[in-house]
């Protein structure tokens, strides 16, 4: 039961490993990026789950309700930034893949290596 109490961390770890494994094991450049994305997303979940309090509401002050429990907003704010960064990274990565495809005609890592070695 105690282990299940940490279920959010289990999910994070599982996602992280899936992402990491994909990144390492796949030769396809797009798949690698997908792995990276999953990997980064797992961290976002970690942050959000850190700040979440069961029964807590959004941290908005409303008149008359002064003793409500809030979810900590700071992790969410931080992760908003991290999401932007993640999107930017993904965009740059995909842009690179597009250019690599134009330059090499393939996005498979081993085929690219073969072409580089020939030169």
């Amino acid at each position: 039961m105690r282990l299940l109490g940490y279920f959010n961390y289990w999910i994070v770890v599982a996602l992280m490993m899936i992402g990491f494994y994909t990144m390492i094991s796949r030769g396809n450049l797009v798949k690698k990026l997908v792995g990276l994305s999953v990997f980064q997303t797992s961290v976002m979940i970690l942050y959000i789950s850190l700040g979440k309090i069961f029964g807590g509401t959004a941290p908005i002050l409303l008149e008359g309700e002064e003793h409500v429990v809030y979810t900590n907003p700071i992790p969410s704010v931080l992760i908003l930034t991290a999401i932007v960064v993640g999107v930017a990274t993904l965009a740059v990565g995909l842009a690179l893949v597009v250019r690599i495809h134009e330059a090499y005609g393939t996005i498979e890592e081993d085929e690219i290596h073969v072409q580089d070695d020939v030169m």
């Binding site: 990491f20 990144m23 450049l29 690698k32 990026l33 990276l36 990997f39 980064q40 961290v43 970690l46 942050y47 850190l50 992790p75 991290a82 960064v85 990274t89 740059v92 990565g93 690179l96 893949v97 250019r99 690599i100 330059a103 690219i112 580089d116």
Partner: peptide, 23 residues
């Protein structure tokens, strides 16, 4: 291009590790 891609993957992993540590 491939160098930059390689750097992007490894750099992002590094940065993500740093975020985890910070979190």
């Amino acid at each position: 291009l491939t160098s930059s891609y390689q750097y992007l993957i490894m750099g992002s992993v590094g940065a993500t590790f740093i975020v985890i540590g910070i979190g």
